[in-house]
């Protein structure tokens, strides 16, 4: 990629690849989906490679940060990705949120466990760990309080009360359009975290209660997000419990199983037809 931009009253110039080019002034939308790291000429390595990456990130990234029409803007996604931020904001806006503890103190974790009864551990981020044999993932797990030992001290941990679920909902929001899929789980592990066993899941389209829509709209506005993939548990009593919002969460498999027009909504959002 070649970039050239000169500062006049604003940045003017463009980006060019082997197959296409665009002027910064022509940009009306930008879809931040799953960008990968920069590719550099093979002669760059080590410290020089790291330095070049940093310059590219801040240079090209800085140019694009000024572009309007982001879906979503990376800075807003970065802020919204913090689970403590989204949980506190959701709660403040009226969404039901599980009782939650963040700690690296085993005693606090044990005390919380005694207070809430059944407790789960959730990682703050979905990234796995690249173990020697192969990458491994960490999902939500029910915690045996007897396991809470000094290993809690080694980093921040998130514990929550375990919510009894009738089913779960993946709510995809695109520019205030709501696409809700009811996820029914049919295995023990999927009942704790449906990401562990996709093959056991079934999907149906479901309506979102009006009060949840209002609260989620407010949450999206507060977090400056145009797109969000939200996870809810619905209790046997019918209460919607907010688990998390993924500012860059997957939607393709939901659209595939439910025929919800999420793809079309995103396309409309990008070309500005709404």
């Amino acid at each position: 990629m070649t970039i050239t931009a000169e500062l006049g009253t604003q940045w003017a110039g463009g980006l060019r690849t082997k197959h296409r080019s665009v002027q910064l002034s022509e940009l009306t939308a930008a879809y931040y989906r799953r960008p990968t790291r920069f590719n550099f000429p093979p002669q760059l390595a080590g410290a020089e490679l790291h330095w070049a990456g940093q310059q590219a990130r801040l240079g090209l990234g800085g140019l694009l940060a000024n572009t309007s029409g982001w879906f979503n803007h990376p800075h807003h996604m970065a802020y919204a990705e913090y689970k403590p931020t989204q949980l506190a904001t959701a709660k403040r806006l009226g969404l039901t949120v599980p009782r939650t503890l963040i700690t690296n103190d085993p005693a606090s974790a044990r005390a919380f466990s005694e207070e809430v009864g059944a407790m789960v551990y959730k990682p703050f981020a979905s990234g796995g760990i690249g173990d020697a044999e192969q990458p491994r993932a960490v999902y939500t797990n029910v915690v045996d309080p007897n396991d809470l030992d000094d290993s809690v001290r080694l980093t921040a941990h998130l514990f929550q009360e375990h919510i009894a679920k009738a089913y779960e909902v993946r709510l995809t929001v695109v520019d205030q359009q709501f696409f809700a899929a009811r996820i029914s789980t049919h295995s023990k592990s999927a009942n704790i975290d449906w990401r562990t066993d996709y093959d056991s899941l079934t999907y149906d389209v479901i309506e979102v209660p009006h009060h949840v829509k209002t609260q989620v709209s407010a949450l999206m506005g507060e977090l400056n997000l145009r797109y969000g993939a939200l996870d809810f548990a619905v209790t046997p009593e019918g209460a919607w419990v907010f688990f998390e919002i993924n500012p860059n969460g997957q939607w393709g498999w939901i659209a595939h199983h439910t025929k919800l027009p999420i793809c079309e909504a995103i396309a409309d959002a990008l070309i500005g037809t709404r």
Partner: peptide, 21 residues
């Protein structure tokens, strides 16, 4: 840092091989 004698954070005890969908 407090010397715990453990080498892996608590959360990693739940690390598993992802189920291929």
């Amino acid at each position: 840092h407090h010397q715990t004698g453990v080498t892996r954070p608590f959360g990693l005890r739940y690390a598993v091989k992802p189920t291929a969908h």
